[in-house]
Simulated scan of single mutants.
Amino acid sequence: VLKEGLDHVPAVGSSLLAFYVSGGGGSLGDARRLFDGLRVRSVGLSNHMMAEYAKAGDAGSARELFDAMPARDAVSWNSMLAVHVRSGDVAAAKELFAEMPERDVVSWTTMLRALSVAGDFAGMRSLFGQMPERNLVSWNCVLSSYTRHGRFSQALRLFPWMLLEGHTPNSFTVVSLLSACEHLRKLRMGRWVHANLVTPALQAHAAVGTALVEMYAMCGDVARALVIFTKMRSKDVFAWNVMIRGLAVHGRAGDALRLFDLMKRQGFRPDRFTFMGVLLACSHGGLVDEGRRAFDAMQREHGVRPSPEHYGCLVDLLCRGGDVDGAVGVVRAMPCRPDQGVWRALLGGCGVRAGLGSAEVAATATVGWSEDGERAPLSDLFKISK
Rank of each mutant, 00 (worst) to 15 (best):
G246W: 02
V222D: 03
L247V: 07
A223I: 03
F260C: 01
D255P: 00
G251K: 13
T230I: 05
V227W: 01
A256I: 02
A225K: 01
V242H: 01
L226K: 10
G251Y: 12
T230S: 09
L262Q: 15
G251A: 14
A223W: 02
F238N: 12
L257Q: 04
D236C: 13
A253F: 05
L257G: 05
V237M: 12
L257K: 02
S234D: 15
V222Q: 07
A256Q: 09
F260E: 08
M232N: 04
G246H: 07
V249E: 01
R252P: 00
G220C: 09
R252F: 10
C219R: 11
M218D: 13
M243D: 00
L259I: 07
I228D: 10
F260T: 03
V249F: 14
F229A: 05
V227H: 11
D221M: 08
N241D: 11
K231T: 08
F260S: 04
A256S: 11
V249C: 10
L226E: 14
L226V: 03
A225Y: 00
M218H: 13
R224E: 05
V222F: 05
V222L: 14
L226D: 07
V242D: 00
L262H: 09
S234E: 15
M243Y: 04
D261N: 11
M243E: 01
V249M: 13
L247K: 06
G246S: 11
M232R: 04
R224T: 11
M243V: 12
R224A: 08
C219G: 06
V222S: 06
K235G: 08
H250V: 10
M243S: 00
T230F: 09
A248E: 00
S234G: 01
H250R: 12
V242Y: 02
D236G: 15
L247M: 09
A223T: 07
V237H: 03
F260L: 12
A256N: 06
D221N: 15
L247F: 04
V242K: 05
L262G: 07
F238E: 12
D236Q: 12
R258A: 14
L262P: 00
M218S: 15
M218T: 15
V227C: 06
A248C: 06
L226M: 13
D255S: 13
L259F: 09
R258H: 11
D221S: 15
D236K: 08
T230C: 01
A225D: 00
G251C: 06
K231C: 07
I228W: 05
V227R: 14
H250P: 02
V237L: 14
M232H: 06
F260M: 06
A248T: 03
M232A: 10
L226I: 06
A239H: 12
D255R: 09
A225L: 02
I244K: 00
L247E: 10
F238M: 13
D261Q: 14
K231I: 04
V222C: 10
H250D: 06
V242N: 03
G246F: 10
